[in-house]
Design a protein around this nucleic acid. Structure first.
Length: 454
RNA sequence: GUAAUCGUAGCUCAGUUGGUUAGAGUAUCAGAUUGUGAUUCUGAGGGUCGGGGGUUCGAGCCCCCUCGGUUACCCCA
């Protein structure tokens, strides 16, 4: 017999989990809307062509591909075999797979903007909350199916957008009780400038990948890795100077200005960071020149949100500016900036810090005991009346001994039970019992809704 | 893709250098109790010890393979 199971890295969510997740999602959505963003949803799957090559070489490997239908149809068999041969050579092949599960929300969004360019009002501000899939090995804080919450503004190069997005992070994390969050900021322009003075712009990816790891592996290992990536010794010295920049945000800006002298690219990035910081007071925003972010399409500001330092969890959000996202889809010149929240990780953090509100797990408010066939039928209109007043209630499904019915109420965390048996029917009353206090009383039917409201 | 580690009742776990019929707690069901629960007492059901192969007189335990979970690397939210 088939033993039931779910795919690696996916999860079922029980009632309690769903309620907690909804609390996070609702908080984020409300904030997005407060800032003037509007919702968008795109399909779970995209044409593979849309996704391939957008996330780097590693990213391509982690895209879940969907097998074409009808491969075994006799008229397709030759094509399928040819496709499989190509696959064995490590090449991608439309003969076998033309569609894939989406890997993030940004690229599908870019695809949407490119397709609907003429109809949209710019700047276009959208938020999107949907699951995405990655064929990664699961581990702590990493799943194969997880939910992303993105907000992007496209069609505007104004740095006001960055400031607003920083404010969104602040507002959401504060509302969730994560006031100790850390928000790190850097600019790809500064990283580009670093590459320019360290062997050329084509070294940028090598340099950023290496320095991004400094938190984990330390400066010495980073230098080693830079060496392996064929960065010259003299340039590694420069990079080390850059990595040693420390102090307050002001200190860092001064130091980096010194380091880059008259480099035009760096100057741009520094001015931008300065502007954003100046107008983001009272926010835990700090410059981190080691912040790089893997995604290739970022060109300006980059952001990363981390859980409070004592929680061992990677980033719980990230984002950045891209100059030409839709250029990939033949609509050049649309700049944008966006951020993302990692709900699944935020969930784990809130769980660890016990920050979920107590009153989330509200179930049924009232359980009607089943006191027999006629009595239970008499309870039905009574329940309808309560529901009309917005009070959730249910009837125990069978006339079994009260012991069992009490236990059911306990387990489902139902605060009140009502006994509406033959005695009560005769006097137009119910017995209502508060299971927390154990206190019970008789109440006239007509007073029941108002009693339950208090 | 690489590595470590775990897998015994619905759940959490014991299980001696390899030795009779694999245990406990909890949950479930029944009874003490046919209109008043969370406590208590009595009893019952529940297992291919993840799966397959091997060593042995004998394997939950040792060896090999495999599947699944967890964690780390790579990469990432």
């Amino acid at each position: 017999m088939y033993k039931p199971g779910i795919p690696q890295g996916t999860r079922d969510f029980s009632a309690e989990t769903v309620q907690k997740r909804n609390y996070i999602l609702q908080t984020i959505k409300n904030v997005f809307e407060l800032f003037g963003f509007q919702p968008l949803e795109t399909p779970a799957m995209e044409n593979l062509e849309t996704l391939m090559g957008k996330y780097g070489e590693e990213g391509d490997k982690l895209i879940f591909k969907i097998l074409n239908n009808g491969l075994s149809d006799p008229k397709n068999i030759d094509k399928a075999k040819a496709g499989f041969e190509k696959l064995l050579e490590g090449r991608n092949t439309v003969e076998l797979t033309e569609r894939a599960l989406k890997y993030d929300l940004t690229i599908p969004f870019a695809r949407y903007v490119a397709m609907n360019y003429g109809q949209l009002t710019f700047p276009f501000k959208r938020y999107q909350v949907q699951p995405v899939w990655r064929a990664d090995r699961p581990q702590k804080g990493r799943y194969r199916e997880f939910t992303q919450c993105d907000a992007d503004v496209v069609g505007s190069t104004s740095l006001i957008n960055e400031i607003e997005l920083v404010n969104i992070y602040h507002t959401v994390f504060t509302k969730l009780g994560l006031a100790q969050y850390e928000l790190k900021i850097n600019s790809r322009k500064i990283l580009a400038a670093l590459a320019e003075i360290s062997g050329g712009i084509d070294k940028m990816t090598d340099i950023t990948i290496a320095i991004d790891k400094i938190d984990k592996i330390g400066i010495d290992k980073v230098k080693e890795e830079l060496k392996q990536r064929r960065i010259l010794e003299e340039h590694i010295v420069t990079i080390e100077k850059y990595l040693h920049i420390d102090g307050t945000n002001e200190d860092k800006l001064k130091a980096v200005t010194n380091l880059f002298q008259n480099n035009e690219t760096a100057k741009n990035g520094i001015d931008e960071l300065n502007f954003i910081l100046t107008h983001s007071k009272n926010i835990n925003l700090s410059i981190d020149f080691t912040l790089a972010r893997g995604l290739n399409y970022y060109t300006g500001t980059i952001l990363e949100a981390k859980a409070p330092a004592h929680v061992k969890m990677g980033s719980i959000g990230g984002g950045g500016r891209y100059d030409d996202l839709t250029g990939l889809f033949a609509v050049p010149g649309i700049a944008g900036v966006g951020i993302s929240f990692g709900v699944d990780r935020i969930y784990d953090v809130l769980e660890e810090l016990k920050l979920f509100p107590q009153d989330l797990q509200l179930s049924t408010k009232v359980l009607f005991f089943n006191m027999g066939k006629d009595e239970s039928l008499a309870a039905l209109p009574l329940m309808q009346a309560l529901r009309h007043s917005g009070i959730s209630c249910e009837l125990y499904h069978e006339p079994v001994k009260m012991d069992k019915q009490f236990k059911y109420a306990d387990k489902k965390n139902i605060p009140f039970i009502i006994i509406y048996g033959s005695n009560e029917i005769a006097t137009n009353e119910v017995v209502i019992k508060n299971l927390k206090t154990g206190h019970q009383q008789n109440i006239a039917l007509k007073n029941l809704p108002s009693f339950l409201f208090n």
